[in-house]
């Protein structure tokens, strides 16, 4: 009789103790340390629901562990803006976590940075960080001086080529007998008279290379247009830091290349799935009519009706400018700009 009871006990233990024990263990795993909350976030492709949960509330100053697990395909997990958190790939069924303290109230975004599905760019969730002393406070709206200036100037950020600057028609020179060469431009720059505006990073931010080219041509009428183009290409990337480019290249490849192509040819593997053809940053002629601040605004706001997602909730302004710098690199170094 004793062994029969023992057997019944074992059966009960298996049928009920095992699942209950598993759930208790899991609960302990996620809340073993009362000072450190563990939040489990399951990642599925956006078509199947994206992140679950997709919104998390955290108190400022609270340390939480965000534990991401992929439920279907390989995802990449990053959190921004300004946190520098990139967990890399999370393969199906695998789990990756990050322990983070959100110091300031505000909104952060966790997002997938690996092309996981046609709706990949929708795969985002938010961490809402509230001030525990003032939980009902509405975060102050972030002002972006670059975008505000563009709006005040009347620039149509959503326009495509030349950003609505009809008073700057593209001259024949943009056929580029020779592709723009940063190297040649570097050498030639020392021999030319460079207008003051072109040495000013702020001016270059708000003007197109085409406008720069006109100024440069006025100052150096004896030089060929090809030489001047080389110099403009050099000037537009001249004060870009190597580390910034490294970071931006990595970010571009993770988040932008699927549509815009790794070389900026506008022909990434997902290019044919977007509402409008992705812009080819490697097209130097296009980029000669483009402004850095407009690129910046497009990245941060996204492209209305184009399937270009907004990155303003993922990147800091500084990170966005790094990405813009990289787009100029693509324009003047990419294979389809003709430079080998």
């Amino acid at each position: 009789m004793k062994r029969e009871l023992l057997a019944i006990g074992i059966v009960v233990l298996i049928l009920f103790g095992l699942p209950v024990g598993a759930f208790i263990y899991q609960r302990q795993q996620t809340s073993s340390d009362s000072t450190k909350r563990v939040i489990i976030i399951q990642a599925t492709v956006p078509e199947a629901g994206g992140f679950q949960p997709s919104a998390i509330k955290v108190n400022a100053g609270e340390t939480v562990t965000l534990r991401f697990s992929s439920m279907d395909v390989t995802h990449g997990i990053a959190i921004g803006p300004g946190l520098g958190i990139d967990l890399g790939h999370v393969d199906p069924g695998h789990v990756k976590e990050v322990t983070v303290t959100f110091d300031k109230a505000g909104t952060y975004t966790f997002y997938c940075n690996t092309w996981c599905s046609p709706d990949h760019w929708r795969m985002r969730g938010i961490v809402e960080v509230t001030d525990p002393d003032n939980p009902d406070a509405i975060p102050i709206a972030y002002h972006d001086p670059i975008i505000e200036r563009l709006v005040a100037e009347g620039v149509n950020i959503d326009a495509n080529v030349t950003m609505g600057m009809a008073d700057h028609p593209q001259p024949d020179v943009l056929t580029f007998d020779q592709p723009p060469s940063i190297e040649k431009g570097n050498i030639l720059a020392a021999t030319l008279s460079i207008p003051e505006e072109l040495s000013d990073a702020e001016w270059r931010l708000t003007h197109t290379p085409m406008e720069g080219l006109e100024l440069l041509a006025d100052k150096n009428p004896s030089n060929s247009m090809n030489d001047l183009i080389h110099v403009i290409a050099y000037l537009w990337v001249s004060d870009t830091r190597f580390e910034a480019i490294q970071w931006a290249e990595n970010y571009f490849n993770q988040n932008c290349a699927a549509c815009h192509g790794q070389t900026g040819d506008g022909n990434g593997p997902a290019a044919n799935q977007t509402a409008e053809s992705p812009v080819a940053f490697g097209d130097a002629a296009y980029m000669f009519g483009m402004r850095s601040d407009v690129l910046y605004a497009k990245i941060r706001r996204g492209g209305m009706g184009t399937d270009m997602p907004n990155f303003g909730t993922l990147l800091t302004p500084e990170e966005t400018l790094k990405l813009v710098s990289y787009l100029w690199q693509l324009a003047f170094l990419a294979p389809n700009s003709g430079i080998e």
Binding site: P19, D72, P92
Partner: peptide
């Protein structure tokens, strides 16, 4: 067997991790 059922019902839907 019980573990297989419980993990199947409540674990990850990713087959090779379940």
């Amino acid at each position: 067997f019980t573990l297989a059922i419980v993990t199947g019902l409540f674990g990850t839907p990713v087959g090779n991790r379940n």
